[in-house]
Amino acid sequence: MKVITARNICWVSIMLLFFCPAAVSAQKGFMNPLLTSGPDPWCLYKDGMYYYMHTTGHDLRLWKTKDITALSRAASAVIWTPPATGPMSRDIWAPEIHFLQGKWYVYFAADNGDNYQHRLYVLENASADPLQGQWIMKGELKTPGDKWAIDGSVFEDHGQLYLIWSGWQGEKNGEQDIFISRMKNPWTTEGERVMLSAPEYDWEKNGEIKEQGKTTHLYVNEGPELLKHGKDLFLVYSASACWMDTYSLGMLRAKSGSDLMQPSSWKKSAQPVFQQSLKNQVYATGHCSFFMSPNGKENYILYHANSKPGEGCGKSRSPRAQRFSWKRDGNPSFGEPIADGVLLPLPSGTVSDR
């Protein structure tokens, strides 16, 4: 007869966690990554449901769930498939779903197979449930100056809609900056574009590309996302080339109600606010979004990262979520990326069917 010891029980428990998902379910928690792949993760919470999207590269898929940490079990559907040819037929990047003025909108970047032609596009759906109804292509979201543009996001402050995105100042690759413009409706910009952030620190200038036999050093600010807290606005962006392990998050801070079209209204942090963890083996942390727990008491950051060094800017990037807090000076404290496989408590108020 085999003697059952504490060591045996511990070993069996470990094996169950790795090979039996039900064992994890019983723990009432979740582990990162949330999916095996999912670059540029975005989610929105509305009426008790989370709506989630990430870059697939070839279409737009939308997930719907009460438990954002259980994406692998969530209902999902492809809501748009690009045409075979044309300006929005290839390289479908960084989709985001927003609910604005009583309708659903999805913003994304696309091109015709030539990266130099990347622009922003908008879909609209008037249905109460964005997995139902009809998604209508509103067309290109033309940015002032009509330059290369990706990673579009929309936010509202004091009744005014704003578009933020990553773009080029001119026609050449080599530097991506963060721009802002006002919007007169969810699919139309108005006025001029204003540059809020350009790469200026060493941690924003890691990366290079080779084109036509020449090496170009890349200076990158991209993936701008807006986080609101009290009377403060935080524009959190990704810095350096996405295939670098040192891909990280930077931040700008402004006061709600200030002139957001004035660069002087925004104060830029001199250091990254979130970056790779060699200790926890999480690399290339970037392109984030934010959500609250279902009961509205906890703040979470949702971001993508790699589990090994050198995995680059491809499908190895997976979505991860972790809770963050606020410092006394009012800034968010995102902490350090949590290692894969660590059991974390569910966001408070989560209704899970695991």
Rank of each mutant, 00 (worst) to 15 (best):
V342L: 15
F108C: 04
I180P: 06
P332H: 12
P337L: 00
V106Q: 01
W11H: 14
Y162M: 03
V12I: 12
D329K: 08
A84W: 04
R119T: 02
W187V: 02
W11S: 10
L235R: 04
I92L: 08
I150T: 06
M251E: 14
G310K: 06
P82D: 08
G330W: 11
D59C: 15
W187Q: 01
K28V: 11
A26N: 10
M183I: 11
K297H: 03
N173D: 10
V194N: 14
Q27T: 07
W187N: 01
I68L: 14
S277L: 05
K327W: 04
Q281P: 04
F155E: 05
K231W: 07
A109T: 03
Q176L: 09
T55E: 01
K103Q: 11
D114W: 05
A239G: 12
A270I: 13
W266V: 09
P199Q: 03
V78S: 04
I9P: 03
L343V: 15
M251D: 13
V24G: 07
Q169N: 07
R7W: 00
M31L: 15
Y303H: 09
V194W: 10
P294G: 13
A84E: 12
F179N: 14
P95Q: 10
H304V: 00
Q176Y: 00
D91S: 13
V220D: 08
I178R: 01
I14Q: 14
S181K: 09
S197T: 08
S318W: 01
A6C: 12
Y121T: 07
Q160F: 11
V12M: 10
A270N: 11
